[in-house]
Measured scan of single mutants.
Amino acid sequence: PDDLEKRARELLKRGKNPDEIREYLRNAGYDQSQAEEALKRAL
């Protein structure tokens, strides 16, 4: 898994919901489609 996916998994483990994770990834400078893909793979 790429770093983005790892980060998404990490956040899920900490109890973040998908919307929070999307926002976090966007704020971290990733584009929307990258964030969506990583989140899908992590779920």
Rank of each mutant, 00 (worst) to 15 (best):
L43R: 04
E36I: 04
G29H: 02
R41F: 05
A8V: 15
L25P: 00
Q32A: 14
L12T: 02
I21T: 02
S33R: 13
A35V: 15
Y24D: 08
A38I: 12
A8Q: 00
E20I: 03
L4C: 05
Y30G: 03
G29C: 02
L11V: 01
I21S: 00
K40L: 13
G29E: 02
Y24W: 12
E20G: 02
A42K: 01
A35N: 01
N27G: 09
A8I: 15
E36F: 03
N27A: 14
R41V: 07
N27T: 10
Q34Y: 07
P18W: 08
G29Q: 02
K40H: 12
R22S: 05
Y30Q: 02
R41G: 07
P18Y: 09
R26D: 03
Q32G: 10
L4Q: 03
A38C: 04
E10N: 05
E20P: 00
R7H: 13
L25I: 04
E10D: 11
A8R: 00
P1L: 15
K6E: 13
E37A: 12
L11H: 03
G29A: 02
L39V: 10
E37P: 02
K16R: 10
R7M: 15
L12D: 01
L39R: 00
L25E: 00
R41Y: 06
N27D: 11
S33E: 14
A28G: 06
Y24V: 12
R22D: 02
A8N: 01
D3V: 07
R9I: 11
K13S: 10
L25F: 15
P1S: 12
N17V: 06
G15T: 02
A28R: 08
I21L: 03
Q34P: 03
D31H: 07
K13E: 12
E5Y: 15
A38P: 00
R14H: 12
K40Q: 14
A28E: 14
R22T: 07
S33T: 14
L25M: 09
L12G: 01
R7N: 07
D2G: 10
R22P: 01
A42Q: 02
R9C: 09
K40T: 10
A35Q: 04
A42Y: 04
N27E: 13
R41T: 07
D2S: 11
G29I: 01
K6Y: 12
S33L: 14
L43T: 06
K13I: 09
K13G: 09
R26P: 00
A35K: 01
D2E: 12
D19Q: 10
E10G: 04
L4E: 02
D19G: 07
L39E: 01
R9N: 05
L12A: 04
G15D: 02
G15N: 03
R14V: 12
Q34D: 12
Q34C: 05
R9Q: 08
K16D: 06
R26V: 15
P18A: 12
K13D: 11
A28W: 11
R9K: 10
G29F: 02
D2P: 10
D3S: 10
L11R: 00
K6V: 11
R41K: 13
Y24N: 05
I21G: 00
Q34N: 07
E10Q: 08
R9Y: 09
P1N: 12
L4I: 13
L43S: 05
Q34M: 12
R22Q: 05
A28K: 08
Y30D: 01
D19L: 06
G29V: 01
E10A: 09
S33C: 06
R7I: 15
K40M: 13
L4V: 11
E23S: 06
R26Q: 10
A8H: 01
D19Y: 06
R41A: 12
E23T: 08
L39H: 01
E10Y: 07
D2R: 10
E20W: 13
D2H: 11
D2N: 11
P1M: 15
L12Q: 02
D31G: 10
I21Q: 00
Q32C: 06
R7L: 15
R22L: 15
E37L: 09
L12W: 04
L12H: 04
E36M: 04
E5K: 06
L43C: 06
R26S: 07
N27L: 14
I21C: 00
D2A: 12
E23R: 07
D2M: 12
L39M: 05
S33K: 14
R26T: 11
R9E: 06
E5G: 06
Y30H: 05
N17K: 13
R26C: 05
D3T: 09
Q32Y: 12
E37R: 06
A8Y: 02
L11P: 00
A28M: 14
E20V: 04
I21A: 03
Y30P: 01
R9V: 09
L4F: 04
A35R: 03
K40R: 14
L43Q: 09
P18S: 06
L43M: 13
Q32V: 14
Y24E: 12
P18R: 07
Q34I: 11
N17L: 12
R26M: 15
I21Y: 01
N27M: 13
R41Q: 09
L39I: 13
E36R: 03
E23F: 05
L4A: 15
N27S: 12
E5M: 14
G15R: 02
L25K: 00
E36Y: 04
D19E: 11
R26W: 07
D31W: 03
L4P: 11
R14M: 15
D31K: 06
L25R: 00
D3M: 10
K6S: 12
E20H: 04
Y24Q: 08
L43Y: 06
E37W: 08
L4K: 03
A28Q: 13
L43G: 05
R41I: 07
E5V: 15
E36A: 05
Y24S: 07
P1I: 15
L39P: 00
E37H: 07
L43E: 05
E36K: 02
Q34V: 12
E36D: 11
L39Q: 01
E20A: 06
D31A: 09
N17S: 15
R41E: 04
S33Y: 14
R22M: 15
D19F: 06
N27P: 00
P18I: 10
P1R: 11
R14A: 15
Y30C: 07
E5A: 13
L39W: 01
A38K: 01
K6L: 13
E20S: 04
Q34W: 08
D31V: 04
L11N: 01
E20Q: 12
R7D: 08
K16L: 15
E23Q: 11
L39G: 01
K40C: 07
E20D: 06
D3G: 08
A38Y: 04
I21R: 00
A38T: 06
R26I: 15
K16Q: 09
Y24C: 05
L11E: 04
K6W: 13
R41D: 04
Q32N: 11
R14T: 12
A35T: 12
G15K: 02
Y30F: 12
D2Q: 11
E23D: 10
K40G: 07
E20Y: 11
R26E: 07
L12K: 03
R7S: 09
S33N: 13
K40I: 12
A35C: 08
A28P: 01
L4S: 06
K16N: 08
P1G: 12
P1V: 14
A28D: 06
K40V: 10
Q32H: 13
Q34G: 05
K40N: 12
R7F: 15
N27K: 13
R14L: 15
A35F: 10
P1H: 13
D3A: 10
R7A: 14
D3K: 07
K13L: 12
P18Q: 08
L39N: 01
G29M: 02
D3C: 07
L39A: 02
G15Y: 03
G15H: 03
D31M: 06
A35D: 00
E37S: 07
A42N: 02
Q32I: 13
A38S: 04
Y24K: 03
P18G: 05
R7T: 15
D2W: 12
L11S: 02
E20F: 10
A28H: 11
P18V: 10
E37T: 07
L12Y: 06
R7W: 15
L43W: 05
L11D: 03
K40E: 11
K40S: 10
A38V: 09
E37N: 08
R26G: 04
R14G: 13
A35G: 03
N17G: 10
E23M: 08
Y24G: 03
K6G: 10
G15P: 00
A42V: 14
E37Q: 09
D31Q: 07
R41L: 10
R7P: 03
D3F: 12
L43K: 04
D31F: 03
I21H: 00
K13R: 13
E36G: 03
Q32F: 11
R41S: 08
E36N: 06
L43V: 07
L11K: 01
K6P: 03
R14P: 01
R26L: 15
L39C: 04
L12S: 02
R26A: 11
Y24M: 14
L12E: 01
P1Q: 11
P18D: 04
K13A: 14
A42P: 02
G29S: 02
E36L: 05
D2Y: 11
D31N: 13
L11A: 04
A38F: 09
E23L: 08
